Computed example of a mutant assay.
Amino acid sequence: MAMIIRFLLVVGAVLGLVSLADAVAGTASYYTAPYVPSSCYGFQDNGVIIAAASDVIWDNRAACGRRYSIRCTGATNQGVAQPCTGTSVVVTIVDYCPSGCRGRTIDLSQEAFSTIADTNAGVIQIDYQQV
């Protein structure tokens, strides 16, 4: 029984490392409601756990509907020193960032951002991966 538990712990650790290796570093900001219309779906309501893609992700509208797992990794040079909540959030891309988010990777809805970080931070460092 102890061997099985050790085996499962090793497998879990390896799988955890694999998922971290697939993550891409970037930055995130947030925008506030109203969230419609959007570049992907017009006036369709897609809920509040959503995001707008920058040029890095947008891919000429191919990003519409893609889902990304986002995790806060730390503060940028502005805002709150320790903004991260320690949780992650999965968002759906429903929009395009104005002017490509001005260098940011992704623009989260306020609700999605507040799940992973203190909104007083404004902009945060993230790891993200498509799910």
Rank of each mutant, 00 (worst) to 15 (best):
N46V: 07
L17T: 14
Q130D: 10
F43V: 15
C84D: 08
S54Y: 04
A25Y: 08
L20K: 15
Y41V: 09
D45V: 12
A63M: 03
T115D: 06
I70E: 05
I126H: 00
Q130H: 04
A21D: 11
D55W: 10
C97L: 04
I4R: 13
S99V: 07
T27V: 04
V48H: 11
S54T: 08
P37G: 13
G86H: 03
A28P: 01
R102I: 08
A21P: 04
A62E: 10
A13I: 10
I106G: 00
F113L: 01
I106M: 02
C72W: 06
A75K: 12
I4S: 12
T27R: 03
L15W: 07
I116Y: 05
G42V: 11
G122L: 06
A81H: 08
I57P: 02
G47M: 09
Q129S: 14
V123S: 07
I124D: 06
C40V: 10
S29N: 05
D55A: 15
S114E: 13
A63Y: 01
V11A: 06
N77T: 13
S114R: 06
S69G: 10
I4D: 12
I116D: 00
S114P: 01
I50M: 07
S69A: 14
S38K: 12
Y68K: 00
Q82C: 09
Q130A: 11
R104S: 01
A25G: 10
L8K: 03
F113I: 00
Q44L: 14
Y96W: 09
P98W: 05
G122D: 05
S54Q: 03
A81C: 09
A62V: 11
A23D: 11
A75N: 14
V14G: 05
Q44Y: 13
V18I: 15
I5F: 11
Q78G: 11
A53I: 03
S29M: 08
Q110C: 07
W58T: 07
I116V: 05
S54F: 06
A63E: 02
C40S: 11
G74T: 06
R67H: 09
D45A: 13
G26D: 03
V48G: 10
M3S: 15
S88E: 13
N77M: 12
G12S: 14
P98E: 07
I4H: 11
S54I: 06
V11Q: 01
G100P: 00
C64H: 04
Y30N: 04
A13W: 05
S69T: 14
A21E: 12
I124T: 04
I4W: 10
C40M: 08
N46S: 13
V56P: 05
G47F: 07
R66Q: 11
T76V: 08
A51V: 06
P34G: 12
L17V: 13
T105C: 00
T115A: 09
D118K: 02
Y31T: 09
S39Q: 12
T32N: 14
G16R: 03
A23V: 11
V131D: 09
A75H: 13
I4C: 09
T87I: 09
G47N: 05
V80Y: 05
T27A: 06
C72G: 08
I106A: 02
R102K: 05
F113Y: 02
V56A: 15
A23N: 08
Q129C: 08
C84Y: 00
D59N: 14
T85M: 04
Q82S: 14
R102S: 12
E111R: 00
T85D: 03
A53L: 06
G42C: 10
E111Q: 07
L8E: 06
